[in-house]
Design a protein around this nucleic acid. Sequence first.
DNA 1: TCCTAGCCTTTACC
DNA 2: AGGTAAAGGCTAG
Length: 289
Amino acid sequence: MKIRLPSSCPFNLGFTLCCGQVFRWEKKGEWWYGVVKGKVFKIRQRGHELEFENIDEDFIRDYFGLNEDLEKIANQIAKDRNIKEALKEFKGLRIVRQDPWECLISYICATYKNISAIKHMLLNLSQKFGEKVTFNGNEFYTFPVPARLATATSTDLKKCGLGYRVSYVYETAKKVHENVFDFERLRNLPYEKAKKELANFPGVGLKVADCVLLFSLGKLEAFPVDVWIKRAILKFYSKHFSSDFLEKIGEKSLTSSQYAKLNMFGRSYFGEYAGYAQEYLYHHQRTQQ
DNA sequence: TCCTAGCCTTTACC
DNA sequence: AGGTAAAGGCTAG
């Protein structure tokens, strides 16, 4: 199946899948293979043309955020030279709509880890607790359902390289499974309320909650602040803060009030699509090092 | 091969 | 209330 994207709909599949928002996509040749909500499919891009198999167009449009007006978003967040440069360099990068459950566990695992290690952990979890699916002669694994992780032993979880995150993943899985937690309900809550609910899960603080809201629940105003965003702010947006504050956040990790301050800055400076600005800044900052 | 710094932070405890 | 240390181990250089 193929669709042709109009030039008014900028999209870059590679940037979108490589920028660190998703962890379980695999590239083989020209094709990207993904497992989303228990289903394997593949997709490739040639210029304005998107070709995919084993999935329908509606899903592709929703998952890759193709129905969002990225030109409008880019114009709205293009507040200064720095962000404009990132927008230009990674034109077509879009925020995906991951499965919220997988996204939650992914970002609980992601704390204090680098991206390759995160990928490794999630692959391990899927191979150990997910279902094997064969597609195009290759083996893939679905992401484990809450019930499966809620009944896993801590020894088995530890083998996946989760370290001290084992109890967070286990307890969160148990809560989601036993309360039959409805992630979809969060979509209709205001940002702050949804964030508070997510932060009730063990292992989920402000940053992880922001990531889940942005990457899976369509809260595009969420502005996750990690070390890279902190660096970008120190480098390009220092004039918005006192030198005393800048000095404090310089070396150590952020306290919750410091996080709240940087988060609020991003949201008020970039506006309702601050999450998009965050991802461009993040990718820009990371690829420059 | 070994070593070290750093990692898309959260929690428990002063 | 606000700051701080510990958490476990992988990865990149």
